[in-house]
Write a protein that binds this DNA or RNA. Structure first.
Lengths: 130, 130
DNA sequence: ATGCCTGCAAAGCCTTTGCATCTGC
DNA sequence: GCAGATGCAAAGGCTTTGCAGGCAT
């Protein structure tokens, strides 16, 4: 049986605040925002609701970079494949890249999606440079 | 003055083991490997040397996905830009995507590189499905 | 001999989880 | 009223850091 869900005040406020922001906040940033309206809310509740809302598709979890988790002794240019099930990481030889992921050949992997993230400098940081 | 660096036995073994592997190990996986040859090495030393080696360009740090750090209330398809300096995340409106990052227009950001990661299922996990 | 590097252990972050209590439905 | 949700606090991972001693140069 599918468990019923409730629209609690906490869940509603979390969703509202996230939709109001366009800064792609971390859980903690959102926690700070939400606390302004609901001081006794706990960080655990924020995490639980973000997971819940991502599960229903109402919000997105972003897997952004900046979190170094793995290392590679091969410094030649090549892209990577990651197994969405076990997290294993493989190589995609340069030259086999394609925007159409059904064309991508990665030995040992069946590729099914691409994740593109651009990197750069935001205007605020650029301003600090002088 | 630039500090001198030493090629310690630890650093050498870490580099050797990483180059020997093609599995893009985590720091901890590498630690296990290295300990087979040098039982008293500490995990801290592994982390310090991986940072050092990445700094000299001898190895690569991979920023792979799987680590959810941010959330987005906008579920329409769009890519993201991340500021390499402060970590701020912005949107790249769909339709403004390009493999040539000098063409990418992201309001508030100056884009300078792209990070592409494919996702899929590795053969081992596929085999477990039956 | 010098100061960079190590092992060890503690501390730091971020996230998850257990539990008693509370509250939508 | 009942099961799902919350607040609180503790526990878990992973990574970084402080310190005293060790070792490459």
């Amino acid at each position: 049986m599918v468990p019923k869900t409730r629209m609690t005040k906490q869940r509603m406020i979390i969703l509202e605040e996230l939709r109001k922001l366009h800064t792609h906040p971390t859980a903690d940033e959102l926690y700070t925002r939400v606390r302004a309206r609901m001081p006794r809310i706990s960080l655990g509740t924020v995490y639980r609701n973000l997971d819940f809302l991502a599960g229903t598709g109402e919000i997105l979890k972003l897997e952004v970079g900046g979190s170094i988790r793995r290392f590679d002794g091969d410094v030649t240019p090549h892209a990577h494949v990651r197994c969405t099930r076990c997290g294993a990481v493989g190589d995609v030889p340069d030259g086999l890249l394609s925007a159409d992921c059904s064309q991508v050949k990665a030995p040992g992997f069946t590729v099914c999606s691409v994740h593109v993230e651009y990197e750069g400098i935001c205007d605020q940081c650029a301003a600090k440079d002088n």
